[in-house]
Nucleic acid binder design. Sequence first.
DNA 1: TAGATTGTTAATCGATTAACAATC
DNA 2: TAGATTGTTAATCGATTAACAATC
Lengths: 207, 207
Amino acid sequence: MPLPALERLSTYIRCLRQLEEEGTASVSSQDMERHTGVTAAQFRKDLSYFGEFGKRGIGYRVTELRERIARLLNIDEEQQVLLVGAGHLGSALIAYPGWHFYRFRIAAVFDKDPDKIGAAIRNHVVLDMERLEEIAASVGARIGILAVPAWDAQGVADRLVAAGIVGLINFAPTKLRLPPQVSVREVCFICELAILSHLVHHQPEKG
Amino acid sequence: MPLPALERLSTYIRCLRQLEEEGTASVSSQDMERHTGVTAAQFRKDLSYFGEFGKRGIGYRVTELRERIARLLNIDEEQQVLLVGAGHLGSALIAYPGWHFYRFRIAAVFDKDPDKIGAAIRNHVVLDMERLEEIAASVGARIGILAVPAWDAQGVADRLVAAGIVGLINFAPTKLRLPPQVSVREVCFICELAILSHLVHHQPEKG
DNA sequence: TAGATTGTTAATCGATTAACAATC
DNA sequence: TAGATTGTTAATCGATTAACAATC
């Protein structure tokens, strides 16, 4: 299964959720193309890597498809996530409204700054980094989020992996060196801005 | 030029900056492979879409390469950016430490919430959305950042485009419908988490 | 049945990798 | 000159698109 196909599943699920809210019961791949911008053929091909989801001549049941894609992504049951870093980014992540829909739950928030430890951010009390291993073990989290400065990222990542984390979202602008069985997804906002900068600068009209 | 090649330029520039700080004057494509994980052949091929950057038998001058890539990305001169949305995410973006290195500058921050308008976030005073067109025109910004809720995103995007914005970073979980000459880059943190969830769930060991 | 739409196969397209001539 | 390393060409690989048989 191609990684781009997996990456598009999130797009589909977001769209299906919206259709559900609007009360739409059924969609065709053509409809999905209109809603997501992904071509009908691409949509059907993407799904085909995972099984059969529709009925020929009819289309797809919105709710069923949403549920089955959720199961594929393993977001059909609540999943514990560790968040390291309680700075501005960490705080914004805690306030993010989408956790619930995707069935993720912040199991614990860590920081090493004594000024932050013990403070409450929304419904989370910031814990001392020292307790990372202990808490990771007790909640059995497999996914962690790195919202720490670049110079701290590798050290924290190593500790998370040692504590049983096998998937990491890395917001720090640094390349992590981790065992190959650990999956890492980089989120680099400023990189996106730089790419955009090139694209708008080299646009046909207006130079 | 393939889009993936462009996307990797940010990785290279980040690496080159680090090498510069360490005082390294020269790198080979092999060195870059070690530092970034992108293969030497890929690195050379990526650069080849834009010109010649090194010396055969020698390698690349770190500073020169960094500067030339910065010019390719159009981040060699200060660039004004409009930020719409002064919530948690907007605040975290304002606090982001990487703006300066990439020569981006937040020209103005907007929100429509009367409780936020007039408040200071770091060195920015939040402006009324009503003034968006006026300010956009006066600073001549071409890039905007959408840090507003999904239900507001399309409307704000339309206004930004009407005000001369041709590149958008969209943090809202919604597909924007915009004229084709407008470049949009989606940043979807929770999508990354969902992808990661699938990857760790379907890993060889531990299931 | 006729019309619609899927799932899948084959064709196309594009990106990556490998190899090597150019050259420092 | 010999060794190193680029820039580029050709070969491979993988993803997307198009077409269509299956089937609701």
